[in-house]
Amino acid sequence: MPSRTNTAPVRAAARSSVAIAALADAALILTFAAIGRDAHQRGDVIAGVLLTAWPFLAGAALAWLGLRVWRAPLRVWPAGVSVWIGAVALGMLLRALTGQTVVVPFVIVALLSLGVFLLGYRLIVAGFRRLAGRRQRR
């Protein structure tokens, strides 16, 4: 008879990493929008940040849902790359469809900035996990 183990801690940890990754993605996209708004000195800070961020947030959310990122949300590949490309590609498409500015320099800045943000923290997590794995093997 197979032994039964309590998988509740594993599920709780998995739910926790999903929540952390989703919140981190949203916070970093909002940070990107806030930095951009600040650099261009546009008024109405909160509404302006949300106006700038919503297409990218929607693009990231669609990537999360469409590609089931919640299965391994902190992995660089495929989760991080999917969220990054989804945020930028779908975000730019939504900006264009709603009459917001989509120019090549902005696309490049968004691609680079969101790449650093959305992949960067996942790379840091991967590095810490690798170190922890090495320490456990000793």
Rank of each mutant, 00 (worst) to 15 (best):
G66I: 06
L51W: 03
I85K: 01
Y121H: 11
W54G: 03
L30Q: 07
A47W: 01
I35A: 15
L123Q: 05
S16E: 04
I85L: 11
V116E: 01
V81W: 13
V125T: 13
L23K: 00
L62V: 05
T52I: 09
A87E: 12
W84A: 03
V76K: 12
R68G: 09
G91D: 02
W70M: 05
L97S: 09
L28Y: 00
R122Q: 11
R42Q: 08
A126K: 05
L112H: 03
F117E: 08
L119M: 10
G120N: 12
P55I: 09
R95G: 04
V49C: 05
R130T: 12
F128N: 12
V125E: 03
T31S: 10
L119P: 07
I85N: 01
L114P: 11
L114E: 13
G120S: 14
D38K: 11
R11K: 10
T98H: 11
G99Y: 01
F106D: 04
A24K: 02
L111K: 01
A72Y: 03
I124R: 01
A87S: 15
I108R: 12
L51D: 14
G127L: 12
V102N: 05
L51E: 10
M92C: 14
A89R: 03
R68W: 09
V104D: 06
L50P: 03
D44Y: 06
V83I: 09
A72W: 04
S16N: 10
L57A: 07
I108T: 06
V109I: 15
A21M: 09
A26T: 13
G66L: 13
G115I: 08
A39F: 03
W77H: 10
A126W: 06
A27R: 04
I35K: 13
A33Q: 07
V69I: 14
V81F: 13
A53T: 01
R37M: 03
A60G: 15
S16R: 15
R130K: 09
L28N: 08
V81Y: 07
L51S: 11
S17T: 13
S16F: 15
T98S: 14
V107H: 06
I85Y: 00
R122A: 10
V69K: 01
G99H: 00
R11C: 00
G43W: 02
I29P: 10
A61S: 11
S113D: 01
F56S: 14
V76D: 04
V104I: 15
V116M: 08
V125R: 04
R37T: 02
R129S: 15
I108A: 15
